[in-house]
C-alpha cells in the first residue's frame, strides 16, 4: 500500500487544499452582510465532537489485524490507556507516549 505522486495523488492533494482554503476564506471573503445561519452555527458546535471519535474508532479497531482477529485487541487496550491519559492531562506528548508504549509492550510480551 502506498500513495504515489501520480494523477490521483496530485489531484487529491490540490483538491484537499482548495476545499480547505475555501473553508478558511468563507466568511472573510464573503460580503460583510453575510451572516452565519443559526442552524449552521448550532451544527458547527458539534463537528469536532463527532468527527474525531469517528476518525479514531476504525484506526483503533480494524487496522493491522492478525489472521484470526476481528478487532485489534492490543490497539484497543493501548487506546483506552491513552484515552485516560488524554482525559486527565490534555497533553499530546503524554497521550502519544503512553499509547505507543502500551502497544509496543503488548506486542512484545502478548500471546497473540
Amino acid at each position: 500500500m502506498s500513495i504515489a505522486a501520480d494523477w490521483y495523488g496530485v489531484v487529491t492533494v490540490v483538491g484537499a487544499g482548495l476545499v480547505t482554503v475555501a473553508a478558511r476564506a468563507s466568511f472573510i471573503v464573503l460580503p460583510a452582510r453575510t451572516a452565519v445561519p443559526a442552524w449552521l452555527r448550532r451544527a458547527l458546535k458539534f463537528v469536532a465532537a463527532a468527527v474525531l471519535p469517528a476518525l479514531i474508532l476504525p484506526d483503533v479497531l480494524f487496522r493491522d489485524l492478525g489472521p484470526q482477529e476481528i478487532v485489534n485487541i492490543y490497539r484497543i487496550a493501548a487506546a483506552l490507556c491513552a484515552a485516560w491519559v488524554a482525559w486527565r492531562t490534555r497533553n499530546i506528548f503524554a497521550t502519544l507516549g503512553v499509547g505507543m508504549a502500551v502497544l509496543w509492550l503488548l506486542k512484545l510480551i502478548g500471546p497473540l
Binding site: I56, A78, T95, M100
Partner: peptide
C-alpha cells in the same frame, strides 16, 4: 501509524 488515532484522542477531550 497508531500515532494518528492517538493524536486525535488528545484533541477530542
Amino acid at each position: 501509524d497508531f500515532a494518528i488515532p492517538l493524536v486525535f484522542l488528545a484533541l477530542v477531550f
